[in-house]
Write a protein that binds this DNA or RNA. Structure first.
Length: 124
RNA sequence: UCUGCAAACCGCCUUAUCGCUCUGAGAUUAAUUUCAGGGAGGAAAGUCCGGGCACCACAGAGUAGCAUAGCGGGUAACGCCCGUCGUUCGCCUUUGGCGAAAAGGACAAGUGCAACAGAAAGGAUGUACAGGUAAUGCUGUAGUGAAAUCAGGUAAACUCUAUGCGGUGAAAUGCCACGUAAACCGGUGCUUGAGGGCUACUCGCCCGAUGCCGGAGGGUAGGCAGAUAGACCCUGGCAGUAAUGUCCGGGCCAGAUAAAUGAUAAGGAUUAUUCUCAUUCGCCUAAGGCUUUUGAGGAUGAUACAGAACCCGGCUUAUAGGUUUGCUUUGUUA
């Protein structure tokens, strides 16, 4: 099993990210919220993923960086949950909506929950 | 040895596992993989000054506006830095010394302002006394005040003087790729010039007809250059009080772009609190108690401020803890 998270798996298109917020659906498990939208079959990878933290809740860039790094790390270690179960291709965006500084254990548990919920919801 | 101050510097480390990004070399199935190497800061921050660079007339004139303000030096430049003189404040061993601070040009151009006291505070002249005149606050003294016609004080008051400043800002700018609509409707204009660029304004200059304005509607928002070798860093020598300059030798040191430089685990270091044991100074006193020095071990906590975004030089602000140097104070010993 590979735990990598390289450039090609990252969601970078401005356009897609914008449509995630306007047209995409979402599932939430505090302190996380996962926005997702279907991608066309021509996409080279199964998922395109991004992470984000509100500037409003975390004023300092250091803190936002820290949270985003933790989010990427937990996604990297748990992404097989989605890859093994997804039938279509998706663009994903994990948004941290909490207001306190999280630690690795908390995010690790949360991201697993939110992934399970996402799988349940997309089955139907 | 201890107390305080100033300056300069450092600002957690190691290993394992799993990852990110860039560069080079090599494989192949041509987008993956293997190996080697690089990968945040002293403030990367605030965006407050100065410059490089780019475009706009290779940037022009005037007005307005803004900034600076002893003298000398440094610098690419500065509103920064160094030296020095004066001023003000503090201390002392007081013709002087040491330290600190700052908004240090001009009030002999004009305008404004001035608490309390005082008759009067700026087109002044009351009272008392004395002197003087043809006559008059004409002159002196007393009195209030920091200051009373003295070329008065005041420019972190307008103002004046000198010097400097054109604007924009990397989302600049150049190129490539992809794509649509050089389509439709209305208005306006084509050298007798619509409109636009430079702009705070006026001039001036330039562009300008497949144009410009409005309506409705459509497309793109990717890549490369800019952009990482420089007023660069390190070790010395020389010049200079210093800021700094210069010379020899050596080095290559982030380059991301929804934005890399990380996560987890274990161990260590530093430090704070506390406990145990040992050691030790002093006091009350002989069980013992309080206090003090140092060392060993254990437990728990803490390890700051903070993340490059075109690049430099400054300033300002944030910052746990530590190191070095200099000065200073207290106590002890010789």
């Amino acid at each position: 099993m590979k735990f990598s998270y390289s450039k090609v798996e990252k969601l970078k298109s401005r356009k897609v990210i914008e449509s995630l917020f306007t047209e995409g659906q979402s599932v939430g498990v505090f302190p996380l919220r996962l926005f997702y939208i279907e991608l066309p079959e021509t996409e080279t990878t199964i998922t395109k993923t991004a992470v984000s933290v509100s500037k409003k809740n975390f004023r300092l860039a250091v803190h936002r960086n820290k949270i985003k790094r933790l989010l990427r790390e937990t996604f990297r270690l748990n992404k097989h949950l989605i890859l093994d179960n997804a039938s279509k291709k998706y663009a994903l965006l994990f948004l941290y909506v909490g207001k306190d500084m999280p630690d690795f254990d908390l995010l690790n548990k949360s991201i697993k929950k939110v992934m399970h919920k996402f799988i349940e919801q997309t089955k139907n």
